[in-house]
Nucleic acid binder design. Structure first.
Lengths: 213, 213
DNA sequence: ACCCGTGCTGAACATCTGTTTAGTCTATTG
DNA sequence: CAATAGACTAAACAGATGTTCAGCACGGGT
């Protein structure tokens, strides 16, 4: 009996990749040894380099695998863009995450690593999401459901990073509010408050009392 | 001539700590070797363990040093809380960061690492900032400059993580909007848009068209 | 003058790392 | 059946890493 249960009839190569993905997401590729990955996958260390050439090859394979998962999410978003514009409300990246990835998936944590380390793959992903956010916001402004704002470039970035912050700071948030915000219950509660702030605002200024500066 | 210039008459121990702080912030403690730190500080590898006992000891010393820097920021915020409540506007953590730490300081990147890894020190820091945010928000609501919101716990977390996201995603944001948001110019442009969203909202709903679900 | 503690170093050590090598097992093909 | 190919492994190897050790320089106290 290997240490991996429930992997079904996956090929050993896939089992190794999955184990690496999970370990990389949790602790980062540099802090994980080939021997650890091999043990987690229930194989010998030599087999992982047999299948992936080297640890860097495995890292690349995991990057590509995760990238495809994120891109499929991205494509789904693209497809529903028109619906989102005319539809009822703002569908956040975090909501899509919570909806698309089953509980316990290592992908949110992997995305966190990707964005916070200065990884070019993470920068590219952020760039694509930013472009999408800008387009979506423009469309919504045309229809009249979004205020354009004085500085659309910054506004789009603001809305996007607010979204990503939920994924990046998932654990501290969970500790603070008492519920994991990437679970169905958590994301519902979170989205409700986000919608309130984005439609009604959070602060009040007496008319004409703009910041002078 | 050592490789370190402008360190003045700092003690060697302090020079080592500063070099370690910078390297840890950039690449993470695990990816930095004792020999690299020693070279950057212009001393021998043996001296760093002579002063700090071990690499882990150095890590702890750097953690404590950075923690004190963050806490001083925190205290400053606490002192100005009353002023902030009655004052003109929301002073974000990011604004305080941009204001308090000179350009090129490794501390923002260090905070990023602290929050990224599931470090208890990072969790504690987040917890303190969260408590402060809640208190601040309550006070502002009493005075009437902030809407309380239906779910104050979530709303405070939302506002806080939006703030931290600016620090965490500094580099991708800079690439997207073309200006580093932690520079004086960047933070001004950013804060203006944040204030607009927080006071006027970003989206419009026709009255009575609340999300049904 | 002597000693002693402190800052500091070069060299060595033990361990852990990614990787290689030689070889076993198993299934498929001729 | 023999042979070939690919999945897989145990053991070893070279390099890097954290750490230790023995000793040097040097300043202050007796």
């Amino acid at each position: 009996m290997s240490s991996v249960a429930g992997e079904g009839d996956l090929t050993a190569k896939a089992i190794i990749r999955n184990a690496a993905l999970r370990l990389f997401a949790e602790r980062g590729p540099d802090a994980v040894t080939v021997r650890e990955i091999a043990t987690a996958a229930g194989v010998s260390p030599a087999l992982v380099v047999h299948h992936f050439g080297s640890k860097d090859g495995l890292r690349a394979a995991v990057d590509e695998y995760a990238g495809q998962a994120f891109d499929s999410l991205f494509a789904m978003d693209e497809r529903d863009l028109a619906e989102a514009v005319t539809g009822d409300s703002w569908m956040s990246v975090a909501e899509m995450f919570a909806h698309a990835f089953p509980h316990g998936s290592p992908l949110p944590a992997y995305l966190r690593r990707l964005l916070l380390v200065n990884d070019p793959a993470g920068a590219a992903l952020f760039g694509r999401w930013y472009a999408l956010t800008r387009r979506l916001l423009d469309s919504m402004a045309e229809v009249g459901v979004a205020r354009p704002g004085a500085d659309p470039a910054v506004r789009a970035a603001f809305l996007l990073v607010n979204d990503l912050a939920l994924i990046l700071l998932r654990n501290p948030i969970a500790a603070a509010i008492g519920v994991d915000p990437l679970t169905p219950e958590g994301i519902t509660r979170w989205a409700k408050e986000v919608a309130a702030v984005y439609t009604q605002g959070a602060f009040v200024i007496a008319p004409g009392e703009e910041k002078p500066s």
